[in-house]
Amino acid sequence: MLIEALVPAASSYAKDIDFVWELVFWFVAFWFILSEGIFFYFIMKFRKKNSPKAEYISGEEKHQKKWITYPHIAVLICDVFIVVAAVKVWYDVKQDMPPTDRTVRVMSSQWAWTFTHPGPDGKLDTADDIIKNDELHVEVDQLYHYELHSRDVLHDFSVPVFRLKQDAIPGRTIMGWFTPTLTGEFDIQCAEICGIGHGLMGARIFIESKEQHESWMAKNNPRGENLLLASNEGR
């Protein structure tokens, strides 16, 4: 709710991540308000004018120490809840890979994103691939795998509406997944500094309904791009 008020949640796991965030938020808000409250109360109560002579408390005795021991155990218990929630969501988003036959390739380079869409046949590296710079088109409610590459330095594929973020590392292929749940057009940012063009390395994601997506594919009969593949041997 808190995050969604600012950024729409457009992937299947966005709400789970928001849930962890909010869980932490409420725990933390409780502890924060409690300790700041006591803190300011003490400052007001034990001002010199109210209490001219201070007490002598070593804090080493058991009945005194309990005032920090109990809260500290309570903090530990809160931590357990947070760990469980965080690890569960982490497992779903990053460790688990639900199967699918749709894959998009994300190639990052200084300072542009190149998205290779599988085209009508649903397979990458075939003649009907649609290659687009700075535009990613996906169909709503379909599970996608992404294949993340980098051509030069570290980049980070970040789609705020998906709550998705993953570094791209040159020399490695990183796989992940997402399922868009809302149609619309949203920002993609690069979230890892990648040189002087880092701030200008934005892209857009277009989440389309089935019909829209099909008509987009039809419109982008990948002529220009494939001429290139054919003439590559001229190099």
């Binding site: 928001d18 962890v20 965030w21 938020f25 965080a86 690890v87 969501v89 970040s158 973020k165 979230a191």
Partner: peptide, 15 residues
Amino acid sequence: IFLGASGADIYMHDT
């Protein structure tokens, strides 16, 4: 704490 919790950090990282 938000950033240490891996699940929430996916979103908050580098923001």
